[in-house]
Design a binder for these strands. Structure first.
Lengths: 340, 340
DNA sequence: CTGTTAGCGCTTTCAC
DNA sequence: GTGAAAGCGCTAACAG
């Protein structure tokens, strides 16, 4: 592989000159010399070695992103598709994504190692939770990062997130608009941050429409298909005229559980019971009936993450920036007007 | 961040000595000196800078892997989950995965750039097709790579693949064992390489059981839900007693189309009609009924890819190694004994 | 305008 | 056993 020396020799100039025409676009290199160098580069097919550049500049133009292991019985809602857009946004900014893995229960040593070896310039975090150890660690280490997802409200760090509150509010309002008043909410446990935001959207919509909240309509469960089944089973145990006529599920996977349980009980989704999911996992459109859901704007999220990251990286502005991106309600066939 | 110089100063030795204790585990460094150096490293918290190492060794310990953009209406069968295992296998071998993207119709310039800048040591290819330009290009450039998926039979390059022929054979034999004789096959277009292998497994099973092949039972279509619907619609147009009693779908997505069309027509999958998919996408287990399918051994594939890659990288053995890994039939509820 | 030179942090001969 | 020094390929003062 040719080096800058080869170009210099070929063009009959010093390596410094070559470097000049390579970098300082407008430095004082004569037209003639520049042309010669460019021709030499072209002729021998030279491309600067990125490792050497990195060493010189103490940067790697690499952004670390940790994979989350997804249990086999679970569906990763958005992260897999997200990664593609993240990579694309990174490239547009002159970076690449370096992926790595770590034990779920002990991520810090791996992050630490990446920092100490100076493998990456920054991290993108995803799947953040309350009291997220990674956030605390990276802030402590004063190492650049941006998070996809919020964490403790009193922590000040740069993040991008979907506006789950807004998304679920829209979903719930849509159901109210269809005439529904008894609307069930299949939520996550209280610890979940994003779950809390989404739930808040449910309350927002109820409040705005003056629909009183009935605690019986709020069921909490895990991120699983079974949780959906359990929720519907519970609601079906209520007296007939107190059962929800519509349900908002915190995630498509839970919605699928509800659909499956509904089928088992002979309840027709979209007619007897309206259902809205959240995430728009790829399969949602092929469910029977196709699932009305809230779509996460993963393309925009990837772009926003890189935008914030560049602010952190370039301006070294420790001013924690945020971006809250509105999701989109995708109306399909699992929702219908209340028929009484 | 401390450098090797800092360690040397702290330990009162030369940087060479530090380097020795760091690398040559058993070089002739006195016990005492080694101890001193180790202590100094510990004390100031030193970790070698990987970029400097890379420059020195002309390696990056990075493996390039290109994302495939997945159209929004499509489900990426296995690639998203595969990537996690690939990253893990790479780490076990001391590598990291560098992800990148490229225009679907013009990948070569991006690959070329990664090579010329010496960004990565090797590539892992996925989603290979017949006459794959990337394979040709990388072989031409004599740049190390391993492919997940085969290509032209007369091309000699290192690949790892699922034994689709074996997988579909097992699936078909399972149906035959259940008493089915009229078995439909929803295949891909002839161009598809993996599709051809899988189809071959269908023929194998038929032959082995002396079930004559009926061309009416072979339908080809795209990788889409609609293709599945179309296939079933066609089969339903046959005379009642000539319709397949069981179907093998080339992929879960096509199987889902078949399920959806079956529902529309009041055909009960698992009772009136047995159905087997291929891939075991995460959602398959939650379909109604849960889909019997052929599971790709993505963990093993990731590991095999890294194993081959190390052979290519270390031994520079251009002897093209291959690994054909058997998939596993996952029996769920979409298949049942033929009841007449 | 262009060339000389000093590193970036590390590994590895080659002397001592 | 240990250290001096060259050099991986590049950038950026600093001279001239």
């Amino acid at each position: 592989m040719p080096t800058i020396k080869d170009v210099a020799r070929e063009a009959g100039v010093s390596i410094a000159t070559v470097s000049y025409v390579l970098n300082k676009k407008d430095t004082f290199v004569s037209q003639e010399t520049r042309r010669q160098v460019l021709e030499a580069i072209e002729r021998i097919g030279y491309t600067p070695n990125i490792t050497a550049r990195n060493l010189k500049s103490s940067r790697t133009r690499l952004i670390g992103y940790a994979w989350h292991e997804v249990p086999n019985d679970q569906v990763n809602p958005v992260l897999d598709r997200f990664t593609y857009y993240l990579a694309q946004a990174a490239e547009a900014a002159g970076y690449h994504i370096l992926t790595f893995t770590h034990p779920t229960d002990d991520p810090l040593p791996v992050y630490n190692d990446m920092i100490r070896t100076q493998r990456v310039d920054a991290f993108v975090l995803a799947g953040t939770v309350r009291d997220d150890a990674r956030i605390r660690f990276l802030q402590e280490a004063d190492f650049p990062f941006v998070s996809f997802g919020r964490s403790n409200p009193d922590w000040d760090f740069p993040w991008v997130d979907t506006d789950g509150r807004q998304g679920v509010r829209e979903a719930t309002e849509y159901l109210i608009g269809l005439g529904h008043r008894r609307i069930g909410m299949a939520a996550w446990p209280e610890e979940s941050i994003s779950g809390s935001f989404r739930l808040q959207g449910y309350f927002d919509a109820l409040d705005a429409a003056d629909v009183p909240f009935d605690p019986a309509y709020l069921v909490r469960g895990k991120h699983s298909e079974q949780a959906g089944r359990d929720a519907l089973a519970y609601w079906c145990s209520l007296p007939r005229d107190e059962q929800p006529t519509a349900i908002v599920a915190i995630t498509d996977l839970v919605a699928i559980g509800i659909m499956n349980e509904a089928e088992r009980r002979g309840i027709v989704i979209g007619r007897d019971l309206s259902l809205i999911g959240y995430d728009d996992v790829p399969m949602s459109q092929y469910l029977r009936p196709a699932l009305t859901t809230v779509q996460q704007p993963i393309l925009e999220i990837g772009q926003a993450l890189m935008r914030l990251l560049q602010m952190v990286l370039i301006q070294n502005s420790s001013a924690a920036e945020h971006a809250l991106i509105s999701p989109r309600l995708i109306i399909r066939d699992s929702t219908g007007a209340l028929c009484r």
